[in-house]
Computed example of a mutant assay.
Amino acid sequence: MAATLRCGALVSSTAIRRRSQLVGAFSSLSSSYIRTGCAQSLPFVPLLRSKFCTRTPDKTVRAVKMEANSNTVPSIVVYVTVPNREAGRKLAGSIVKEKLAACVNIVPGVESVYEWEGKINTDPEELLIIKTRQSLLPALTEHVKANHEYDVPEVIALPITGGSPQYLEWLKNSTRD
């Protein structure tokens, strides 16, 4: 089975085919779903579970707590907003090149509403979602400040408390110590 490592996940060709089959199934919502707003009321949910949830308990992917696995390190997700795609790609590329992060997702279409110098502003932006080691936050923050066009760039870190052991190990191995 062919598999591809993407920044967000390890994706197999089988999983992609399965997802594409689901598109048609979910496009025809029943009236019971519309009335209740609950996916459990859809008549085909048990069928989908039996057809597409073929993993046996021994093959289940298990999440891991960060401190429980010596192959991982305490990790974080960092949010940084940028004014446009070009600025986002440039900053994301320099962050990954410097091994300050394993992966940076660029999310387009963010609209930010904020107060600056006594005035309410609304601006289109893009959001960088950066996955890195907790220990790299000071260096990442300095890198963003030095390479960002905003006077006060957003740098907000959230802890990763667990996840796929393989992904978290890849994050560790893709960043500098």
Rank of each mutant, 00 (worst) to 15 (best):
E126T: 07
Q166G: 06
L171Y: 01
L137T: 03
I160H: 02
Q166P: 00
P165E: 14
E117H: 13
E126Q: 11
E115H: 12
N147K: 11
T122V: 12
Y114V: 07
T132Q: 08
T132F: 04
R133H: 02
A146C: 08
D151K: 15
I130Q: 12
N173T: 08
P124I: 00
V144P: 14
G162W: 01
A139Q: 15
L127S: 08
E169M: 08
A157E: 02
G162T: 03
L171Q: 04
L137R: 03
E154M: 13
P124C: 05
A139S: 15
R133S: 02
D123Q: 14
W170G: 05
Q166T: 06
W170D: 13
T161W: 03
S135Y: 00
K131C: 01
D151T: 12
A139D: 13
I130Y: 06
Q166V: 02
I160P: 01
N147Q: 03
G118I: 04
P159K: 10
I156L: 14
L171H: 01
I120T: 13
E117F: 03
L158F: 14
N121P: 00
W170V: 01
E142Y: 03
N121D: 02
I130H: 07
Y114A: 07
S164P: 04
T141A: 14
V113P: 09
K145E: 14
I129V: 15
V113Q: 10
L137V: 09
E154N: 03
H143N: 09
E115W: 07
S135M: 06
K131F: 02
Y167V: 06
S164D: 14
N147L: 06
R133W: 00
L158M: 14
E125Q: 11
P124Q: 09
L137G: 02
I156S: 08
Y167E: 08
S135L: 10
P124W: 00
G163A: 07
P165G: 11
S164N: 15
P165R: 10
E169A: 15
L128N: 07
T161F: 04
E125D: 05
N147V: 06
T132K: 09
D151N: 12
